[in-house]
C-alpha cells in the first residue's frame, strides 16, 4: 500500500472512531432510558454517565498530541478539536442534567451548591475554563489570536482536566478506585508534556550555551 493511501485510511478510521466516541453515548443513553436500563434513580444515573463521558473525552483529547509526537502522524491533530468539543458538549449535558433535572431549575439551590460545595465549585471551574476554549476552537479564532496566543490560551485545558478529575474525586462518597484511576491517566498525559517541555528547555539552553563557551 502506498504511504498516501495508508494515511488516508488511517485518517478515516481515526475520524470514525473519534466521532463514535463523541456521539455514541447518545443512542446508548436513549436505549437505556427506553429499556429501563437507567435503574431506580435515572436522574442520578444520567448525571454519573454524562460526567464520565465528559471526563473521558477530555482525557482522549489530550492523548492526540502525544500520540502525534510519538508516531509522527500529523494528520491525527484534527481529532483533538472533535474530542475537545465533544467533552465540552457532554460537560454541558452533565450540567444541564444537574440543574434541569436534578434541581428542576431551582437556581437558588444551584448557586448555594456552587458556593457551599467544593466539588460543585471545582466542577463549575472546569466548565468555565472549557468554555473559552470551545468558543475559540474555530479556524477563524486561531487566525484572529495567532498560533502562539491560541496555544497559550488552550493550555487552560490542563487546568480544566485536573479540575474535572478533582470534581469527580470530591463527589465520590467512599470508593475512590475509579477517580484514582482517572488521576493516573491524567498524570501520565500531563507528565508526558512535562517531560517533553523539559527536554525542549534543556536543548534550547544547551544550544544557547554552546556559542558562549567558544
Amino acid at each position: 500500500m502506498a504511504p498516501s493511501v495508508q494515511k488516508t485510511a488511517g485518517r478515516r478510521i481515526a475520524r470514525v472512531l473519534v466521532w463514535a466516541a463523541v456521539l455514541g453515548p447518545l443512542p446508548w443513553l436513549v436505549w437505556l432510558a427506553v429499556s429501563g436500563g437507567l435503574g431506580a434513580n435515572p436522574i442520578e444515573s444520567l448525571q454519573h454517565r454524562t460526567g464520565h463521558y465528559a471526563i473521558r473525552l477530555l482525557a482522549a483529547s489530550l492523548v492526540i498530541t502525544p500520540l502525534k509526537q510519538l508516531t509522527g502522524w500529523g494528520w491525527l491533530i484534527i481529532n483533538r478539536r472533535t474530542l475537545g468539543l465533544g467533552a465540552f458538549t457532554w460537560a454541558m449535558v452533565h450540567l444541564s442534567v444537574y440543574v434541569g433535572l436534578d434541581l428542576a431549575l431551582d437556581f437558588s439551590q444551584f448557586f448555594e451548591d456552587v458556593i457551599k460545595r467544593r466539588y460543585i465549585a471545582v466542577g463549575m471551574l472546569a466548565i468555565a475554563l472549557l468554555t473559552p476554549l470551545a468558543v475559540t476552537s474555530t479556524k477563524g479564532w486561531i487566525k484572529r489570536l495567532g498560533g502562539a496566543k491560541w496555544n497559550k490560551l488552550h493550555r487552560l485545558v490542563y487546568v480544566a482536566m485536573i479540575a474535572a478529575t478533582v470534581h469527580y474525586l470530591w463527589a465520590v462518597k467512599r470508593d475512590i478506585t475509579l477517580p484514582v484511576l482517572y488521576f493516573v491517566v491524567v498524570a501520565v498525559l500531563l507528565g508526558f508534556r512535562l517531560v517533553m517541555w523539559r527536554r525542549r528547555v534543556t536543548t534550547a539552553r544547551l544550544s544557547a550555551s554552546v556559542p558562549q563557551s567558544t
Binding site: A40, N41, D113, R117, W170
Partner: peptide
C-alpha cells in the same frame, strides 16, 4: 458537607 439535606428524591 457535600449536599443539602433539605430535600430528597423519592425513588420513582
Amino acid at each position: 458537607p457535600r449536599w443539602t439535606q433539605a430535600k430528597e428524591r423519592r425513588i420513582g
